[in-house]
Design a protein around this nucleic acid. Structure first.
Lengths: 130, 130
DNA sequence: ATTTGTTTACGAAAATATTCGTAGATCAAT
DNA sequence: ATTGATCTACGAATATTTTCGTAAACAAAT
């Protein structure tokens, strides 16, 4: 494996990753403007954070222009999975389905979403049957 | 609401809460011995942590005997929900079902668990239909 | 070419979280 | 009543994370 992901992102770093996963890529200013909506921090704070993340290998960046453009260097899926696993382990007594039930319970999901989940459940069952 | 839960548990505190939720209650030694299996810390470290958690209102304790007995002061469910919400928000683009799919995907669930989830999905649909 | 605004780099302060050493209390067994 | 084991309390050192001030580079507009 090439991408070093020994460094697990901190809370603040996760917020930035979340933004970049959604946007695809962006400058410090782009990220900062979104971050500002839910948080209260100065521009250089965001900058510093993203620089650290780059050092750690959490972000890639293009420095060919004066204003650098960043993007996530670790995949959203693997990060999600890592966080889920830890969460299931420490807070859900090791039971993934307990987590699923809890997640479905308080988040009113759309019919469309529910259908997608059902369909997925069927696929899983088919796989296990054979 | 009586129980002050302004203080969100830290990483280490969550581990302790997880143990106490599962055990119901326990002494510092009880908790420490379980913690030791997955972690490497001294006894007084665990003690101090649990004392801090008591101050914060995360744990209750019975001091009538020399060896104090602790238990969680915040509910597992509400803590789970809080963590899930934040996680959905920052890492799953706000989509609960995306989290559910990811959780089901890599965690091979038992048929029994899958049935429980399906049943639950049906209940949710019934509720929404009316 | 000077000013203005925006950017990066850097260092270090401030805030939080984790760890542990040491002292004193308590109790059981010698 | 002295020893040994175990416990709590407390303070402080470490480590980690977050925050921001300041300086220098750069470009666009005056």
């Amino acid at each position: 494996m090439s991408t070093a992901k020994n460094n697990k992102p901190t809370e603040s770093e996760l917020e930035i990753l979340g933004i970049l996963w959604e946007k695809g890529s962006g400058t410090v200013r782009d990220v900062h403007e979104i971050l500002e909506k839910s948080k209260d921090a100065g521009y250089t704070t965001t900058l510093k954070l993203m620089q650290i993340m780059h050092e750690k290998g959490l972000l890639k960046r293009d420095t060919s222009n004066k204003t650098h453009v960043y993007e996530a260097a670790i995949s959203q899926e693997s990060t999600q999975q890592q966080l889920l696993n830890k969460m299931i382990d420490t807070v859900f007594n090791g039971s993934a389905s307990q987590l699923v039930l809890q997640a479905l319970g308080n988040h009113r999901s759309s019919q469309e979403e529910l259908d997608k989940i059902k369909q997925y459940l069927n696929e899983i069952e088919q796989q296990q049957k054979k």
